[in-house]
Amino acid sequence: MGSPQVKIRLPQDTANSYEWNAFVRYSIDVLDTIDGASKYGEINEGEVFLEIEFIPIENAEELVEKVLKDRLKKAKKETEHMGLALMKNSTCFGCHADKATHTGPSFSEIADRYENTSTHIVSLSNSILEGSKGLWGNTEMPSNPDLTVSETEQISKFILEQGAKKNNWIIPGLEGTFRIIEKPKNIEQGFYILTASYTSTSKMRGQDSILLNIR
């Protein structure tokens, strides 16, 4: 039994070269011997994630290739954060996203407001368990009594860590669109590393990484 096969597809461009501020539409193909194929709607979208990382190239002298190779290697080894695994199996992504505000605050807004300290992990964990209202706006978050305290603490840790990452985004689902950042000052070129991953029902993880060249 092998790991699921995961493949990122970018429809617009074969050269994988993009301009700053451009929209990128992507889809992810998944094929698993047991679960089936995304093509036939057999793959649980909630288990598919795209992680996007921006790598600025500040200095043309830098060994671009080496930097990227190291980064890609790292991406291959990464395992999933427990907190993310728990969130995927819950309702959270219906209302929250990493860097975009949906019904609930984004992970980055949460991380901006609360430093990653044990006190905040406890208070966030409590909000997740009990539900929350009035801290961010008029909409309320339902309680999550099916989760345990240690689980919601793992989740809070993940939210604070992920939210604090400035050049890193995670998006759930088999397809979607993201927008490349505006050109930062002092930088002419950069790369986006896209890593798609899928965790199968038999807990096997498959992933695929590709590189986008941004000019």
Binding site: F23, V24, R25, T103
Partner: peptide, 27 residues
């Protein structure tokens, strides 16, 4: 929420894009 995922060319004006990015819905 659906429009967010659809690239439109040429890009929308910043004001229009703001609406698409920030409009909130009851859940």
């Amino acid at each position: 929420t659906a429009l967010k995922k659809i690239p439109i060319k040429p890009t929308l004006s910043p004001k229009k894009q703001f609406v698409i990015d920030n409009l909130a819905y009851d859940q």
